[in-house]
Design a protein around this nucleic acid. Structure first.
Lengths: 105, 105
DNA sequence: TACATATACATCGTAACACGAGGTATTGTG
DNA sequence: CACAATACCTCGTGTTACGATGTATATGTA
């Protein structure tokens, strides 16, 4: 997918990935892979940004000798997802604008 | 609309605005206003970028004493729009991912 | 035992990009 | 004459995705 197009989606996708269950970096990437691909460097940048924006909280937990950082969504994060859904309506009207006049496909 | 979300849309919107009829900067902004707002500085940056990418060609024409720069879409530009439609399918599946589990609204 | 692979996290530099602020110039309109 | 509208353009800034790179442990596997 076009890199610019991803910019507006990644934050909300990551928030969605931890919405129903707390998760950690490596797992988030694997869970999102069928929908959208992102590198580790990108993900950790996003997670840091979302933490600073108080859209998620972080805690560490040990699992089989390794320390994992788990991420938990906040109300602010949930609100961010809702705001995206509002933006999606505008996106949809834009899509209509772009495809208007198309008969086929 | 979220600024990051716009990034992936603006190029294609501008191309759409000149798709059916050659147009010029000031008019493009007015035509797009009902769908998406963008500043002049943004538009001229985009037009320059699309010209370099050979997605449009430019010619000047005089109208009531003022010089206008008209923009004409190329095959490459038309292709860009088609590519966006492909990306939209991925966007749509992402939207499903983000809204899965939502019953209301 | 030695080595590869998977797991797990993190930083740095770069390039792309939207935008505000500011600039130039002409044509109406009050 | 002052002001808005039309029409174009440049520069600096902040945000951001990504590749490259680094660190460390656990689990195969030869």
């Amino acid at each position: 997918m076009d890199i610019q197009l991803k910019r507006g989606l990644l934050d909300v996708c990551v928030l969605t990935a931890i919405k129903n269950e707390d998760s950690y970096g490596y797992k988030i990437i694997k869970d999102m892979k069928p929908f959208i691909e992102l590198s580790e460097s990108t993900l950790y940048t996003i997670l840091k940004r979302l933490e600073v924006a108080e859209m998620l909280t972080v805690y560490t937990s040990e699992y089989e000798g390794r320390i994992r950082k788990y991420y938990h969504i906040t109300d602010c994060g949930l609100k961010r997802i809702e705001e995206f859904k509002e933006d999606w309506k505008e996106m949809w009207s834009l899509y209509q604008f772009i495809t208007k006049g198309d008969e086929d496909e």
